[in-house]
Write a protein that binds this DNA or RNA. Sequence first.
DNA 1: GAATGTGAACTTTTTCACAGCG
DNA 2: CGCTGTGAAAAAGTTCACATTC
Lengths: 225, 225
Amino acid sequence: MALTPKPRPDGIPTPAVRRLSLYLRELEALLDTGTQTISSRQLGETLGLSDAQVRKDLAYFGQFGQAGVGYRVEELSQEIRRILGTDRPWNVMLVGVGNLGRALLAYRGFVKKRFNMVAAFDADPALIGKHLTPDGVLVRPMREMAEVAARMDIRLGLLCVPAPAAQSVAEQMVAAGVQAILNFAPTTLNVPPTVAVLGVDLAVHLEQLSFHLTARDQGRPAAAE
Amino acid sequence: MALTPKPRPDGIPTPAVRRLSLYLRELEALLDTGTQTISSRQLGETLGLSDAQVRKDLAYFGQFGQAGVGYRVEELSQEIRRILGTDRPWNVMLVGVGNLGRALLAYRGFVKKRFNMVAAFDADPALIGKHLTPDGVLVRPMREMAEVAARMDIRLGLLCVPAPAAQSVAEQMVAAGVQAILNFAPTTLNVPPTVAVLGVDLAVHLEQLSFHLTARDQGRPAAAE
DNA sequence: GAATGTGAACTTTTTCACAGCG
DNA sequence: CGCTGTGAAAAAGTTCACATTC
């Protein structure tokens, strides 16, 4: 163990950040089983990663382990939450209350992670003013977006409108102060570089699996996850 | 242009395969606008990729372009579909007809790509035998999975059950002959290496965006998409 | 002139391997 | 001893730059 006080390295591989979420998921499951400590080898095992990978990933952010022992599950969980910024709740808006949007509004997994869906918007006048579930959030007209976002301090948004509307809606979200967008529309968004966009194209995911099926049937390798 | 007849390289970067889907999405949009040909530079532009990246990615699979001209949109689309294995329809099953499962059953994006949701399963007796939408698919009991999968030649499945049930359900799917799983449960699946799994953990995606928000607020870099 | 396909250079990410701590 | 943290080596992926083709 070195004594570099805080190298503030910044040159953290993007894949390492992605894996951080997976480590956290694993650690939270371990907490439920009452496990106190875990080694890099054990932590990587379930996820199909090498022990070295796990240690290196965590080391980008600090020194959380204890030589000879491993990592304290509770402590490491909290550290990762702090790094990811989920040690506090975020208010989230959802735009586009179609089938998918409704399902996401009701998704329990967000609540557990303290992502609070506090506002929903849609362009369809027929939906405005409705609560889609008894305890669900009110659907508002698009024009209220900026005001509501400011009042509720919303910086994160889910975009669930059809592809043709996506770019224009994204611009409205950005104008309203949204700084990070999870985009479910099957299209690429053009936004200012300060805004983070993560695309989740469900058809693309299936295509990737189709490739694996096809490639395997033809003798190509094909890995997973 | 070289005359390597078919190098059968096999050492195709996984990211290249992912990008193939994005190229196809772009090309399909271009088809609607009646564009005949496109250069690697133009194709990469919308996606934020360099022209070299586009050419190299495509070159892993063959020689589809014409020097001085670019790529024929129609032709390249078909080539990519062939590579991805989406030049033909796939029958797909969905297991777990909760909020998310229902939304996915109704998702129009799958239909367009010829992923046919032909069977749905759930463990809840109250849902069995129902059609969740007028034109929707019948919800069947889990025990019929193997028989139905064989009869309908289903090799692809969407897993939309709660995390605690996911591993056991995945095993049933594999036993029923499913060879590729799109996993929406926030947990890692342990399946035989012949089976491809792609995880879509919605909370993880939001966590990644939270990281970007947090990192940016603190002077770290943070890229997107 | 415009744009591909591709070796070679470069950058990023992963793995190795081992000193050192509890 | 078991296990971390980390430089150094290896592998993977991206960009460069250019000969070549239309």
